[in-house]
Write a protein that binds this DNA or RNA. Structure first.
Lengths: 340, 340
DNA sequence: GAAATCTACGAAAACCCTTTCGAAAAGGTA
DNA sequence: TACCTTTTCGAAAGGGTTTTCGTAGATTTC
């Protein structure tokens, strides 16, 4: 580790003294403000460099009323969906010279409240709340003195602005792709039925099928978002409905399980059976045999958008309200179309 | 979103005025300091609550010389190893009422330098640098005015304090477990040979084998950290050395590939062939068939430790220097021992 | 040469909080 | 009553920066 001697950080006063000018002149010289002669400016700059002076952002923020920081309040870092969102947001903020306070509430409301208080005490300029599911979550309330944007998990208060992936469109997209591949007997295996994501994707899928005059083969199968369930479900499904030619899976993990079972049962993918996943979790999708076609929710983009909205709000621009469903995209790989 | 009207945040002065006392009295009342009558204290508290007053952490920090913030400088959020470390650190800091600035340098030195400057300008009380590999990384230098702890990727300057998982011990542990399971003909499939992690694990494995008077079967196989490579390597390996009874894999992804190939080639795991992975990536390990025994690097613990070191350093306690190798642990699942 | 106009700089206020120290009020003692 | 102690409170400084405004000196104009 480094020099922990509490050697007081070098201040603007130090620079000014060393340069033989007043504090105000030094400030102006460093910030290109006010009338300062070129010579003085250069001199101050040189000294500042030499002493490796960095202005105290706190003191600065105290005046400006802005801190140049935002809070990122996540409910669960563990979740796979947090990271891309977090990356997108961090990236956008970094470009805007804004720093991010990261708080993980661990899915605990008390802890969330506590973190919120901390963030407000730090006078963040804005807050992004990232939930772990696309289900509605309790609003932080309208009393927060800074702009708040909800990402992934929408707020249950329509006056809040929420950005969430369009699972309905994702379901449609998956089915439309399967239909375009010539599939007609399509089944659906998904995760926990209590998730809005599961229901929305199913609804989108059904809508797309209905437009083609079709319906799902059998009842949609719900249980867990795991590979194990994918395997078990696929085994059951293929026994009950051996005539299916495609499976739309609620997640890539489930799809991996389905691929596994299909292989075990001698069904060839994609010729005999097409499989499409959801989430486009690269590690899983690209290492599957065959590689897995999937729906990508553009989460990094979502995080980015959330950051940009917060930017706008900070600049006093009205960012609107309500839940906005961001577009998803199809990533085609070998599990739905045979390699040329 | 919420009330974006720049309504000036309520200040201690507002509370004091409303309570009919001086600012100093209000401060003391809220902080349990100095002599304030119970009545006054209660009154101030009530008013503060009513106005939902939150003290300005900046103004507070300006006096104290401490900000109660630390910087978390990661080189790549995407990596799977960042998250547990980040969680551990965030958790430890959160308990200490310290907030975390998250910066992602995206593996770019320029960006890292820029973020470092920002962090210093924000007067963080300490910094944790998290690298994406266990290879040595350039030190930030000894000139940083706050304590710095390197996590996962150790600094190349021995005067810095680095915490990194003990890959050598991990390699030993894996082999010792396989030996304890009665295996004698053990092969090794790992990822990119340029990674220190790959070499350290191999070295540990060889040491453990040597102690038992054994050596690896065939040359260790290196390529990528992917499932694909695991499959290909296992296929080659089983053809070349059909007599092996165990494979130590450099990652869980590789191990998944190995399991796949073993299955294809009719080798039963664990009876016929034991497979052990590395990283204990739950999603992969627990969904494998059979579930995957693996080495867990205790990354969350590592993040936690790093945070605690920073705490100590902030409190003026000497935290030492050099690279410390933190213990790893074996997680036994079905791929090495048949279920009871 | 005086007045007007610029230019370059500095003094000081403001931001919000904590802390120290002194003062006033209240109560007790001789 | 005079003095002392205890209790309770307030004035003010201090922290680092930005910004406004005033001023001294230099330069131009008539």
């Amino acid at each position: 580790m480094s020099d922990t001697t509490g050697a007081r950080a070098v201040t603007l006063g130090d620079v000014a003294a060393r340069a033989g000018v007043s504090i105000s002149t030094a400030s102006k010289a460093l910030n290109d403000r006010g009338d300062v002669s070129a010579a003085t400016r250069a001199k101050v700059r040189a000294i500042a460099e030499e002493l490796s002076f960095t202005p105290n952002a706190m003191a600065r923020g105290l005046l400006a009323g802005r801190t140049g920081t935002v809070g990122l309040l996540t409910s669960d870092l563990e979740g796979r969906f947090m990271i891309p969102i977090l990356m997108g947001a961090e990236d956008a903020f970094g470009a805007g010279r804004i720093n991010v306070f990261l708080c993980d509430a661990r899915g605990d409301a008390i802890r969330e409240q506590h973190h919120l208080k901390e963030l407000l005490s730090r006078r963040v300029d804005g807050i992004i709340v990232v939930g772990r599911q696309t289900d509605h979550r309790p609003s932080l309330g309208q009393e927060i003195p800074v702009p708040v944007v909800y990402a992934y998990a929408p707020s249950d208060d329509p006056r809040d602005l929420s950005l969430t992936p369009d699972n309905y469109a994702g379901g449609r997209l998956a089915i439309e792709h399967l239909l375009a591949c010539g599939r007609r007997r399509i089944a659906h295996i998904s995760g926990e039925p209590s998730y809005a994501a599961a229901q929305d994707r199913l609804a989108g899928a059904r809508a797309a099928l209905a437009e083609a005059g079709l319906d799902l083969v059998g009842e949609p199968m719900f249980s867990e978002w795991t590979e194990h369930w994918g395997r078990d479900a696929a085994a059951m499904l293929l026994q009950r409905h051996p005539d299916i030619d495609a499976v739309f899976c609620g997640s890539d993990q489930i799809a991996r399980g389905v691929l596994d079972s299909a292989r075990d049962l001698g069904r060839s993918v994609p010729d005999d059976l097409a499989v499409i996943g959801y989430d486009n979790w690269e590690v899983l999708a690209t290492n599957a045999r065959p590689e897995l076609t999937s729906i990508d929710a553009n989460l990094q983009q979502l995080g980015r958008q959330a950051a940009l909205r917060v930017f706008d709000a900070i600049d006093g621009i009205d960012i609107g309200e309500g839940a906005h469903h961001l577009p998803v995209r199809l990533v085609i790989r070998g599990s739905t179309i045979a390699r040329r």
